[in-house]
Amino acid sequence: MTMGIHTRIWQEEPEADNPFAARAAYCRGYDVYGELLGQIRWVEMLALLFRDEALSKAEADLLEALAVALANPGPRDAAVHAAMCGGVGGSTSAASLIAALAVGAGQNAGGREVFLVMQAWEVCGTNLDAWRQWLTAPAPDEVSIWPAPQHPPGFDPHGVSTATPVKQALACFVSLNSSARLAWLEQQRAELEAISGLPLALSAVAAAALADLGFTPEQGEMLHLLLRLPGAAAHALEQRQLGHKKFPFFTIELQHDKIGDQA
């Protein structure tokens, strides 16, 4: 039974007087505190944790733009709403972030949706017929912990036309990085929307960017979860300060209630 942790991400050298204190820490061979600190961009460090090779300048620009696009889904988003439920009641900071992660993990605008779209990129590439087949195939009926999908991943189930920020993000990402998937997505957006019958969602743009950056679906899911947390944190703290009297509670109507009053 092993007692050590196998990793190709991290290496530490101990201080001479304490085996539990690191004198130096290396991330994939780079001295983190001795060399990277002050030189590396945050998004470069973020990528380095997931892959051996450093990002190129164009790749780092794309990841940074993606991080900005995802930083705050806004207070109407279910994940941020969940974080605010933590904040308004004075729950711990971690609870607010856990709430945002749990809700933001899902197949409707969440991490799982990004995962599924990235899986589709692996299967379909830039082949429109393959996407047509994927988008029109019946949802797999395999039972899992995830609820049955209700819409084709990467599209807005309530949308009428492509939301302006989705188009802006896609155009910005393409201008920063002419990698295959993003450029193809921009060219084929209208066609893909016609096939699915729904407008493209930000999750699809994020998935294409993450795939173009070389991340796997699992890595893309993690990064999407992570990069959406700043807004959740900020909105949770803001609601804590504003107090519960200013936070919506909504009305409820009980169906089949014996008494039938409203709360």
Partner: peptide
């Protein structure tokens, strides 16, 4: 508790960083 030696590193060798 884990000492630094409990991290069994299997990644790239030490190298210098060159900013992109």
């Amino acid at each position: 508790p884990l000492t630094c030696a409990h991290i069994l590193y299997e990644g790239p060798a030490k190298r210098r960083w060159h900013p992109a």
